[in-house]
């Protein structure tokens, strides 16, 4: 199958995602320049991390108006898998593909460290390789990852089981201390109602090889591949 990694001016995890997909997950992958108008021929899209447009104005706010975005939105509407990581998540929020918004981290500082993440569902195209309630160790690296939404939205996310990943302690509890940035309900990653658009702040591409200290993140890429190739285990 073929992945597309969308490159915005200021994206900086594009090469990292490309590397994992090609060299670790062994799949076809191509960059998609933000000025392209279509995403034909791709089976899944990744909006990588970084600082598109310098994070100026609001994170993701300018990238959301890139020429490629209408095609990305159309791709998502038709059910194609879209993963937004970190800045990619922020762009998906600005584009309205996912609900909510990002605020600055509670600490007001950029945070780069490895956190515990609980997998809340395994019957999705992004998590079928994991066990329910499995705890993943995945790095975060962001200054604005404090997920916010109003109570109605939160209730909808909960009712529809859209909260895929939550920050937790080593026992899997969603404690205040385990919440690195102040996100509502310890939210680290959510999917849309249809279940084909994932936004997450942690960086799975940074922990997909043992030499980097762990490969807990690889499952997300492999899950999508399995799902696309119709061998989903569920």
């Amino acid at each position: 199958m073929k992945f597309g990694v969308v490159v915005f001016p200021g994206s900086n995890c594009d090469a990292d995602c490309y590397h994992v997909i090609r060299n670790v997950a062994q799949q076809d992958v191509e960059y998609i320049w933000h000025q392209q108008h279509d995403v034909k021929g791709f089976d899944a899209l990744v909006l990588p991390g970084g600082f598109s447009y310098g994070d100026y104005l609001r994170t993701g706010a300018i990238a959301r108006f890139s020429p490629v975005m209408p095609a990305v939105i159309e791709f998502a509407r038709r059910g194609g898998p879209v993963i937004g990581i970190c800045n990619g998540f922020q762009i998906l929020l600005e584009a309205g593909l996912l609900p909510g918004a990002m605020l600055r981290n509670r600490s007001l500082t950029f945070i780069c460290e490895t956190v515990n993440l609980r997998v809340n569902r395994t019957d999705t195209m992004f998590t079928n390789r994991y066990a329910k309630d499995q705890i993943l160790q995945i790095p975060i690296a962001h200054g604005e990852g404090n997920y916010y939404c109003d109570n109605d939205t939160l209730k909808r996310l909960q009712d529809n089981q859209q909260i895929l990943f939550t920050y937790c302690d080593s026992e899997g509890r969603e404690t205040e201390e385990a919440n690195p940035n102040g996100s509502v309900a310890n939210i680290a990653g959510i999917i849309n109602e249809q279940g084909n658009v994932l936004g997450m702040m942690p960086h799975p591409e940074r922990c997909s090889e043992p030499i980097l200290g762990g490969s807990d993140g690889l499952g997300i890429f492999l899950s999508v591949i399995d799902w696309c190739q119709g061998v989903s285990r569920k």
Binding site: I111, P139, A141, I211
Partner: peptide, 26 residues
């Protein structure tokens, strides 16, 4: 903790873990 020390996915010995930082060359 305020520095992104992992982007580019080469950092094999991260800050604080060794007497020096070690990066792989892909």
């Amino acid at each position: 903790r305020q520095y992104d020390h992992q982007v580019m996915t080469n950092t094999v010995i991260v800050p604080g873990d060794g007497d020096a930082a070690v990066l792989r060359i892909k």
